[in-house]
Write a protein that binds this DNA or RNA. Structure first.
Lengths: 152, 152
DNA sequence: CAAAATTGAATTGTACACAATTTAATTTTG
DNA sequence: CAAAATTAAATTGTGTACAATTCAATTTTG
């Protein structure tokens, strides 16, 4: 009774998903030593990127931009608040919403972060063109996936 | 005193890292409803893929294949054991190593999983060729990143 | 060969992710 | 307008990730 070999399509090295998962974690790992001096984790850095771009968003708006829900963002934002980088305030117009704003320290941190993208680009050994192409392919993939699998 | 606009290279939409991070989480999300009937999470599915391919690896070998450490794998493997899908046994030759083996149920699960890759391919709306190209680009990126940033 | 160094898992502690529920505020509707 | 429905955060619970430490087993070395 010989055991059937695994069919090709179940081989780990065939999986796009694993290539994505591994690449994402590897890149995040590259950020770690660069963000550590700023006192930020990678997801916290993403939140800061959004706020540096547009300050004063609600938790919901941040979540839409990063595709994260309040279960992830609420504790993360509390840590950023404890670190003195953002403030959290209920909105006057609608008390259900919480306004996230950069503090002076949070805004100032942008300067210390401004060298990071270039540093990363070097670490990844890709040309600017290669990076843009790959990035846009991944965006397209994410966009197409956005439509749910088969919710009838 | 007007606030400086964020420089282009700090814009979220410019980041390859975020495109990767978002795509990876989106794809994992696609797996969720497919793996739920099998009682697996996505990282658990990856472990099963490795074991279906080669049974009887140590925690360390699994970790090398998936780029995960014992802090992640030990609890994950205990859950797979509790689910009756794998066994964990100290190796006779070297008692430090723990051998992970599929149970009959673990091996049997492969048949129920065999349709998943095709299902995913459809959800991603990519041709087989596009998938392979993207996968190989990501593998190359991960491989290049493997070399540490600048550990002198 | 015994002390020192190394190795492999496990453990501890922090920080995501995300489903599901809860709570409070607002909007809709009969 | 008041009850019902909806919405936004927060909370709860489970499961990763990963750094750092611990512990036991094996290797290396003086």
């Amino acid at each position: 009774m010989k055991r059937q070999p695994t069919p090709d399509h179940l081989l780990l090295d065939q999986q796009l998903c694993f290539a994505l998962y591994a690449a994402s974690r590897s890149v995040t790992g590259l950020y770690r030593p660069l963000l550590e001096p700023l006192g930020l984790t990678y997801p916290q850095y993403l939140v800061m990127l959004v706020l540096w771009e547009q300050d004063g968003l609600t938790v919901r708006e941040l979540g839409q931009r990063l595709q994260l829900d309040s279960g992830t963002l609420t504790p993360l934002l509390k840590r950023l608040q404890t670190a003195g980088l953002v403030s959290r305030q209920r909105r006057k117009e609608d008390e259900r919403e919480v306004d996230i704003r950069l503090t002076d320290a949070g805004l100032a941190l942008r300067d210390k972060a401004s060298g990071i993208p270039e540093c990363l680009a070097q670490c990844m050994q890709l040309s600017l063109d290669q990076m843009q192409t790959l990035r846009d392919e991944l965006k397209r993939l994410t966009r197409q996936i956005q439509l749910p699998p088969s919710e009838d």
